[in-house]
Design a protein around this nucleic acid. Structure first.
Lengths: 338, 338
DNA sequence: AGATATTATGTTAGCGTTAACATAATGATA
DNA sequence: TATCATTATGTTAACGCTAACATAATATCT
């Protein structure tokens, strides 16, 4: 393999010292325009690229951000992929590369992360986060950020989360403003925190508009298509005029139940879903033949913001502990004015 | 953040020289059992972990393998994920970590890979491989391996590929042995090389068993659900007794056409698909209510083998240029004996 | 016991970069 | 023009590890 040249060779070629070359590369310090040009020429001629390993050692900083993804079933990979994309972009904008740790089930990453100095900071994502990892990283004071609202065993981490409370409240208020009062809610609040926030938002909207909360309209454990189907079948007995459903899989199931009951969306029942994944959502829209009104999570922005937070933290800047990102309500064709 | 200790501190604590510590860590050279224990004790007490950046600089080797994934639509992310998983495992078994470059559309990675000395070698995966990347890496003599059979502008790269010829031939022979002779083929041979090999395998089987090749039974451009549907609609006019379909999306579409025509699988027509993705496949099986006979790509093994190849190459071992991995024919319920 | 092989340990100089300090060249000021 | 501030460049010592060589301590053999 062709050996790549180093700083000193460039310095010699340009007739300057190594530090002058270093300054040109890093745009740091003062370098006269004349020598800068000389150096740039030499760099070009020798096809020089700085050795990042050596730089990292000297700086005691790799400019690499770690991202640990704890994958699990039931979450569409594309959901994570979009966020990863965002993290990547956010990191890149601030001069960081991204090292993704994933595809190793039930594995603990923290030792490899905190020692070995390969990453300057880390972002954790996923529902089933490894508790040992958190404790480990936390105790060492290693900079880390969660994607998603978390509080684990007394540890209050830095986190960035979609504002599910606000998002769901907006959606529920939209339905109330359209004249709905019998609004169903199909979520999974007992298991997963983000979805508890969705329920909260739902309740807040009702409260604000003096609509009485009816627990019979609320189904708290629905994740899969079948869950959604079963929940909807039950819910329909209450004759709701609208329903908010917490994820796309459940929405597909619920819609099947609606169709089976001979009901039409939005004529007989208004539906608002969550736009977890574009592909799935399009599939859904084809399936029911209309554009579903959804609460959309800006996933790329979420990832970007996570990167910004983690980098702010590891660079020692003051960083707020909890951060929220607004959801967007996409008003489409699945809600009807009463 | 708590600073982590280094070799010299460990050496002092153990009352030995730095090299002795280095030898203990790397299990290299000769160290007496007594001092080894002393050193291990010191390592434990100081909670020491070697700094991989420093090691990489000294060794001029990072023990990191790069994997570039050029993602594209139409391929289920899970397909790649399984392979990535395999690469990860294969690399890990040989003492390498994996750095995945992905989620940056249309980006060229080669400069960052070959310079900057962050990875010792690289694996490329995906259909739409960046030509500039290949040329660049190739010209520099940087060790690289393709997943999938490739020949690009006169460059004959190292590659590992599923043996599509053999796999499809096996499937076709199975059908022939069941008495079928009017066997349809729905693929995408004009566009993508692996699928051209599938067609080859199909033809080989016919030839071997003296079944006349009928081009009217062959549809060469089918990728999406809709493609599969259309192709099957056309194909049915020829009254085939069996069909081989090159991917799961197309298989779903084709099956819809079969159902619409009032035909049953396998009573009226035998079907063999490709098991691109388990999740999709299960969805399909639920959909038609039987287990599809498939040609399965051992994706994890494919990834592992790619890692082994790349590492063999970068370590300077003699490595065969082309490698093939056998496909498995999963004989299930979708084929009938005539 | 002395010579030789073997095992165990230590010393030193890099790897390619940057931080920190030192010096030289230039410009501004009185 | 001498003096000081500023800008431009250079020198040296890390960063934490390992390779390569050097030496010391044993073990093995005649």
């Amino acid at each position: 393999m062709t050996r790549s040249s180093n700083l000193i060779e460039v310095a010699k070629a340009a007739g300057v010292s190594n530090m002058t070359v270093s300054r040109v590369i890093n745009n740091s310090g003062n370098v006269s325009e004349k020598t800068r040009q000389k150096v740039l020429k030499a760099i070009k001629e020798l096809n020089y690229q700085p050795n990042l390993i050596a730089r990292s050692l000297a700086r005691k900083k790799t400019n690499i951000l770690g991202l640990v993804v704890y994958t699990e079933q039931g979450v569409h990979p594309a959901f994570y992929n979009e966020i990863i994309n965002g993290v990547q972009k956010g990191a890149s904008e601030l001069g960081y590369d991204l090292l993704v740790f994933a595809n190793r089930e039930d594995q603990s990453y923290s030792d490899r992360i905190t020692h070995s100095s390969f990453v300057d900071g880390v972002i954790f994502m996923g529902v089933k986060i490894n508790q040992h990892d958190i404790r480990n990283v936390h105790e060492k004071g290693f900079p880390y950020v969660f994607i998603g609202k978390r509080e684990i065993e007394g540890i209050h981490p830095y986190y960035i989360s979609p504002d599910y409370v606000k998002g769901t409240r907006m959606a529920a208020e939209h339905l109330i403003e359209l004249g709905h009062t019998k609004i169903g809610f199909i979520g999974q609040s007992r298991i997963i925190e983000p979805d508890y926030d969705k329920l909260l938002g739902y309740q807040e909207a009702l409260f604000k508009h003096h609509v009485v909360y009816n627990p019979q309209l609320v189904f708290e454990e629905s994740q899969t298509q079948l869950d959604g189907y079963n929940a909807m079948k039950e819910l329909l007995k209450q004759k709701p005029t609208a329903v908010i459903i917490n994820n796309t899989y459940a929405t597909i199931g619920a819609t099947t139940a609606i169709k089976e009951a001979g009901l039409q969306i939005p004529e007989d029942i208004s539906v608002i879903g969550f736009d977890d994944n574009q592909e799935l959502n399009e599939q859904y829209n084809d399936f029911i033949g209309l554009e579903l009104s959804t609460i959309r999570i800006p996933k790329v922005e979420l990832g970007k913001e996570a990167a910004r937070m983690a980098i702010s933290l590891l660079e020692g800047n003051e960083t707020p502990k909890a951060n929220f990102i607004d959801l967007h309500f996409m008003k489409n064709d699945s809600c009807k004015k009463l």
